[in-house]
């Protein structure tokens, strides 16, 4: 089976501004990939290239085994897309909009829209202009899922939703992946990506800085060691230790980021009175922030 999504050396420039640079990425059927980065990092640019709304300056995109440019209509037939900036037809009701899009798709399984609307607690017969932003977002989610696509491209799908509805969308994502669909899920919320993604791709300033499973990223990342001393301690000697990448805090409390064996750190700590010692794996947020500070490339 071909990859659900295959990006090869994707570059998109706007004049002199680089939107995305040399981005390569694969997504397999049944996989949920979290596409992580703050606003302006190039997530939406990447996604719009996949949808053939904008064209790459360089590089190649294949979606479900088809060329993204040449076969865009065939691709979109099998793809569900939720834009990051969702704009709906204000004068239609949700039902009218979904029926319109259903016809453009050559029909949607009977009862599917109603079943999804029930799960998302969406009232279908009110004009969209009267809906709250959360309810609009549900209309967007619904049109992306209603034809059971093989690839879902979701740009910040839960940004307007309350936690309960976020969970409902996560469940839809898991179900879709369960029946073999691939999900490309962009977000700037780490906790969310950590919950539902099999793998995470981190994008910064248009460049991919890491792609791996959450656990591998975590295993690769520096350990965090937090220490409370009996008396204020000079942090300088610790900075000289090779595996210690960063030291912060002051006085009695110091935090160390350690990449590699902790032996040297422990021996240095032993020269002082240690009241409390905590060592742990960083959470995704800390890994992410490390990449964003530009410290993660080596790790």
């Amino acid at each position: 089976m071909p990859a659900a999504l295959e990006l090869r050396n994707l570059t998109k420039r706007y004049g002199n501004v680089v939107g995305v640079r040399d981005l390569s990425l694969d997504l397999e059927p049944g996989e949920v990939l979290g596409f992580l980065g703050p606003n302006g990092a190039g997530k939406t640019t990447t996604i719009r290239c996949v949808l053939d709304m904008i064209r790459p300056t360089e590089g190649r995109i294949r979606v479900l085994g088809l060329d993204a440019r040449e076969r865009s209509v065939a691709i979109r037939r099998r793809l569900g897309y939720l834009p990051g900036d969702l704009v709906l037809y204000e004068r239609l009701t949700a039902r009218e909009l979904l029926r319109y899009f259903g016809r453009l798709r050559g029909g949607v399984e009977a009862g599917r829209v109603e079943a999804l609307a029930d799960r998302l607690e969406l009232v279908l017969d009110r004009p969209i202009r009267q809906l709250s932003s959360g309810n609009r977002q549900k209309v967007g989610v619904l049109q992306a899922f209603m034809h059971d696509p093989e690839l879902l491209v979701l740009d910040e799908p839960t940004s307007e939703l309350d936690p309960l509805m976020q969970a409902a969308v996560h469940e839809l994502v898991r179900e879709a992946a369960g029946r073999g669909a691939a999900v490309f899920f962009s977000s700037h919320q780490l906790a969310e990506v950590e919950r539902i993604a099999d793998r995470v791709a981190i994008i910064r300033h248009g460049e991919l800085v890491a792609v791996d499973t959450v656990s591998a990223l975590r295993a690769r990342a520096p350990r965090l060691v937090e220490v409370r001393f009996g008396a204020p301690v000079d942090p300088e000697p610790f900075r000289a230790l090779a595996p210690v990448q960063a030291v912060d805090g002051q006085g009695e409390r110091l935090r160390f980021a350690v990449d590699g064996p902790v032996d040297a750190l422990v021996k240095e700590l032993a020269r002082h009175e240690v009241v409390e010692l905590l060592a742990r794996e960083p959470d995704l947020e800390e890994i992410f922030m490390a990449y964003y500070r530009g410290e993660g490339e080596a790790g």
């Binding site: 209509v73 897309y81 834009p83 900036d85 969702l86 704009v87 709906l88 037809y89 453009l104 049109q143």
Partner: peptide
């Protein structure tokens, strides 16, 4: 300009 084109062209319409 309104932005509805993005969702419309998410459908299989060339």
């Amino acid at each position: 300009e309104r932005g509805t084109l993005e969702l419309l062209l998410a459908n299989p319409v060339g």
